[in-house]
């Protein structure tokens, strides 16, 4: 996860495509779909895979959860017991990986100890006018589900919020069409 280069905005996330060979004492893998975790199985194999489903034929310990909330809770408990030397690998769409990222940072992991791999188009949008979050796909414009304003999806990404910033697209229409 580094942001560099001159062609894109600094805060736009860059994702890994494979795990880095950094040393670690314990590797945890979290995947939205276990099948997408294949590129992370090389380099010393992870100790444990948490996923929301999918099949992964690999010889590692796996736990599957019926909902994101259950997975997040399990991960939180694991990290509370974890020691320095733990590395976390996360595969999924941006909404998912950034939720896990923020949870892990809160538990004491550093950004350098977390690797994110993007798989899927879903991402979070934050309306800077009414502070509503909503999930969107790759589209560059969206109607805010909170205030109805037509939003431009900026490339600027907030790691703290785990979302892209949405700003009013047309200054001559600062309010939503369906606003009473």
């Amino acid at each position: 996860m580094t942001a560099s280069g001159t062609d894109t905005i600094f805060s736009k996330p860059r994702y890994r495509t494979a795990a880095s060979p950094q040393p670690a004492r314990r590797r945890l893998l979290v995947a939205q779909d276990a099948a997408c975790a294949v590129p992370l199985l090389d380099h010393p194999a992870p100790a444990l895979l948490l996923s929301l489903g999918g099949e992964l034929a690999a010889d590692i310990q796996q736990e599957r959860f019926p909902s994101p909330a259950a997975l997040y809770l399990r991960l939180q408990l694991l990290l509370e017991q974890a020691e320095v030397g733990t590395r976390l690998y996360v595969v999924g769409d941006e909404t998912f990986v950034w939720h896990v990222y923020r949870l892990a940072r809160h538990a004491g992991l550093l950004g350098d100890e977390i690797e994110l791999i993007k798989s899927g188009a879903r991402r979070r949008l934050y309306c800077v006018h009414c502070a509503t979050f909503q999930d969107i796909g790759e589209e560059g414009e969206a109607n805010c589900s909170g205030c109805g304003v037509r939003l431009l999806v900026r490339e600027h990404f907030s790691q703290r919020l785990g979302a892209y910033m949405g700003v009013c697209l047309d200054p001559s229409r600062p309010y939503g069409e369906d606003r009473p």
Partner: peptide
């Protein structure tokens, strides 16, 4: 520290 997976930031 590096060998045990401590990043430089710690």
């Amino acid at each position: 520290a590096r060998a045990l997976g401590w990043p430089d930031g710690r």
